[in-house]
């Protein structure tokens, strides 16, 4: 098991370095820079001297290879630099948004798991019955519906519904208050995007749970358990579910990693000050340092979650660690 963990850890570093090089080069392919946009982006006069000073301050006047050298030194010394747009340290910019994105990711994952596991199991246990058909339709609808679109529908539904029932339109708060400061305000803002996103991801997990359960339920040891006279509830919960969890855990882990930085549109729909919204802003503003740091953060989260999923895989299935 330990040698397996060490091997997986050793693969992490080249993956991160490769991603760092790629993101640096891709960003520089887009013409223009943050200084042009910041000082002349609204059609007014932009002082050329000011733009020159801005480029000088940000190191954009340096040759690409020197910029790359600076970037890699920063990468290895954990110095991510400052945002080219706000001049705030990148760690501060990310730190402000990290809590919100983490909370959304956890809430959406919980929603996803709470929906997916029971529905997937029921659907498998009641295969080819009306219950199974309903669950399959429900999950296909979730896959077909982008979460941001569902988010828009939720907002419009709240606006129209509240106006019809209470006489005044209401929508979720658009500014973030931490959970520990005002739990009610916090949840009234975040529950909706968590539902929209959780439903989307539950659809994939539901289908995965269903197919994994179906496979396990046809295994010999399940037939043996039934022959022994065990009740169906025990067979499913004790013998089948744990073994069916392998692919489901992988899906949930990857989804969680994606949620940490991938809610680009949904965060904008609900005006959530999270990493996804920051991502969009940093790209549209050509904020290289912030974009690079965010990409690396998402890569690191993906790599880390994959690593943890692999470990869990090995824990769940002894054949993997012995191989």
């Amino acid at each position: 098991m330990y040698s397996y963990i060490v091997k997986r850890l050793l693969i992490l570093l080249p993956t991160l370095i490769g991603a760092a090089i790629l993101v640096f080069l891709l960003l520089r392919l887009v013409p223009g820079d943050v200084c042009l946009l910041r000082f002349g982006g609204e059609g007014g006069y932009a002082d050329p001297e000011q733009i020159r000073l801005c480029r000088e301050r940000l190191g954009l006047d340096l040759p690409i290879y020197l910029q790359f050298f600076d970037y890699m030194v920063g990468f290895f010394t954990f110095d991510l630099g400052v945002s080219m747009w706000t001049s705030q340290p990148v760690t501060t910019e990310i730190g402000i948004r990290f809590g919100l994105s983490l909370q959304i990711a956890i809430m959406a994952t919980l929603v996803s798991v709470v929906i997916a596991l029971p529905l997937g199991v029921i659907s498998a246990a009641k295969q080819n019955t009306p219950v199974d058909y309903f669950v399959r339709a429900f999950s296909i609808a979730g896959i077909a519906m982008p979460s941001f679109w569902l988010g828009i529908l939720i907002i419009l539904g709240l606006l129209i519904g509240s106006q019809a029932w209470f006489g005044r339109p209401w929508m979720p708060p658009i500014d973030y208050v931490p959970l520990w400061v005002d739990p009610w305000y916090n949840l009234s803002a975040l529950i909706w995007p968590a539902l929209a996103t959780g439903y989307r991801y539950s659809a994939v997990a539901t289908r995965m749970t269903r197919s994994a359960m179906l496979e396990v339920l046809h295994e010999d040891y399940v037939r043996t358990a039934r022959a022994k006279g065990l009740i169906e509830k025990v067979i499913i919960n004790k013998h089948a579910l744990k073994n069916a969890m392998l692919p489901v855990v992988t899906i949930i882990g990857i989804e969680f990693a994606f949620l940490m930085g991938g809610l680009v549109v949904t965060e904008q729909v609900f005006n959530l000050n999270g990493l996804g919204k920051l991502f969009v802003e940093s790209v549209t503003q050509s904020d290289y340092t912030l974009t690079q740091a965010l990409v690396m953060l998402v890569v690191a989260i993906f790599v880390l979650v994959n690593f943890l999923v692999d470990i869990m895989y090995a824990w769940l299935d002894p054949r993997i660690r012995y191989n």
């Binding site: 907002i155 209401w170 929508m171 979720p172 658009i174 904008q268 729909v269 005006n271 969009v280 802003e281």
Partner: peptide, 16 residues
């Protein structure tokens, strides 16, 4: 801060 125009519009409509 609300970069999306639709959010700004709905925020006024929805009392936020």
């Amino acid at each position: 801060s609300a970069p999306k125009m639709s959010v700004r519009l709905q925020a006024i409509r929805g009392g936020q």
